[in-house]
Amino acid sequence: MARPEQPAFSKSPFLFADRIALEDLPERSLVRMAHKFWRGLTPEPDLPARSDFDASDVPRKIMPWVFLHEVVRHDDGTLDYRCKLMGTSTVAMIGFDPTGRMNTEFFTTPALRYLNDSLDAVVRQGSPSFWKAGVPHARLEAVAVWRGIFPLASDRKTVDMILGIGEPRYLAQDKE
């Protein structure tokens, strides 16, 4: 499989996102499990809708690490994201709970903009993306994660929600 195109993100040395292919993830990664779950929600080429599942359908192993964001489209064409659900392990990892808040409330610096840029790409392309990334942490500089971002669309075409997972890379390495 061809390598996905690298976005031009502005980031610090510890906060980064390198786009990778699904095959680059560890074989037993929770991100791969999340992809299988997402793809099983509806037949291709349609995109799954948020209504295709509820939180109790998400595999127990991945639920603590998932996040769900509503896509907010502004009149000027820019996008933002309202956190609708943040798994308990993700909250513990990043050090705060953003549920109910807009990403632009806490991803305000150019070094953190790359997080929204990766979501923007999924919304515009209507296809999942996979990342090796360093995400901000409340007490540490960053936490290294494998990240999967999956589009959801009420009309099966226009992305209006994002399902995602950020798995600390040490967890995936422990499974190999």
Rank of each mutant, 00 (worst) to 15 (best):
A153P: 05
R139P: 08
S129C: 07
I62V: 13
Y170C: 10
A49R: 00
Y170H: 12
P128M: 04
P151L: 04
G100V: 00
R73V: 07
Y81D: 02
F150P: 00
P13Q: 00
M102E: 05
P64E: 06
E5I: 11
L112W: 04
F9G: 04
R169A: 15
K84I: 05
T78Q: 03
F37Q: 10
S29R: 01
F16M: 01
P110C: 09
L25Y: 02
K61C: 11
G164S: 01
R139H: 14
T109N: 14
F67A: 07
E23K: 06
G164E: 00
G126D: 00
M63N: 10
L112S: 06
E5K: 08
L140P: 06
S89D: 06
S10A: 11
A17I: 01
F67W: 09
P45T: 07
L85V: 00
F130Q: 02
E167K: 12
L30P: 10
D155I: 13
R124W: 11
T158W: 02
C83H: 04
I165N: 00
A2I: 12
T88C: 10
Q125D: 13
T88P: 08
S10F: 15
I165H: 00
L140S: 15
D117H: 06
E44I: 14
D52I: 01
L47Q: 10
I94R: 09
V135Q: 12
S10R: 14
R32T: 11
M102W: 07
A92R: 10
A2W: 10
